[in-house]
Amino acid sequence: MIQGLLDGLLVGSIVSLGAIGLTMVMHMLRFANFSHSELLSIGAYGALVFDRIFAALVPVAASSVGPLSLTWALFLAMIVAMALTGLSAIVIDKLVFKRIRETAGPLSMVFASFGVALIIRNVLALIFGLKPQLYSGDIAFAVTISTDPSLLVKPDQVFVFCAAVIIMLALHFVLSRTTFGYALRAVAENPALAQVAGVRLSTVIAMTWIIGGALAGAAGVFQALDNQVSPMIGSDFVLALFAAAIVGGIGSVYGAVLGGFVVGIASSLALVVLPPGYSPAMPFLIILAILFIRPNGIFGVER
């Protein structure tokens, strides 16, 4: 039970990171982006490639950081992968979504996002293979925190949780303390009025993609570090991200963080009663429940 709670916190921190970008894009561009979770896969594979490159260039970097299986090379690769994922999010927007946004309605955007997701997922599978890979071949041993109740935690998991919280805190300061943060919130609130006040809409949209993409990239690396790098990360997470965004209320960054933890913990605790095969359906049940109880989410406003 408590082990489930701990696992849920970990999964929740990953879902939260992914859902932040999704909820911002859904609010600002008014469409459900089914390709957002593929950014997690891009991040995970990006880190895999750069980890190998850095480790080959500077062999010292291939040594582990403290008790973690994470190496310095992977840590650097993660930062590069975050930038790479943010850039891919912008490129995808320029190539596909921006053009469709200008000519067609939001439904076409949703259709297009499914198409984009299919392409990204399967191109990654074609390049890197369908077989899952690992960042490090070393076995990461779990540390026993207590024996009764039995609690096991891997050092990597502690790192993932702390890093995710630090990234979210950093985002909080950007949103609440900087001019850019104000501009972003203004556009989300009322795009026309924000433009009148001198906010460049295109810049804010681009920054939203970069931030959302970078956070998703980090989430992908964390997921891959805790489990494995697989082209299916995106499709595994798509419903969980939507569930987190809907629970929190579309457009609410803090709601998405809370929603991510709700989804993570609920999914982990559900494993106590349900057979593991059913876990893919868990986010859907959360979505249905929240739509019946509070359709606009916890922090959402009616539109």
Binding site: F111, A112, F114, G115, L118, I119, V123
Partner: peptide, 8 residues
Amino acid sequence: ILIGLVIV
């Protein structure tokens, strides 16, 4: 990939 390309 082909189906995705057709849609987009």
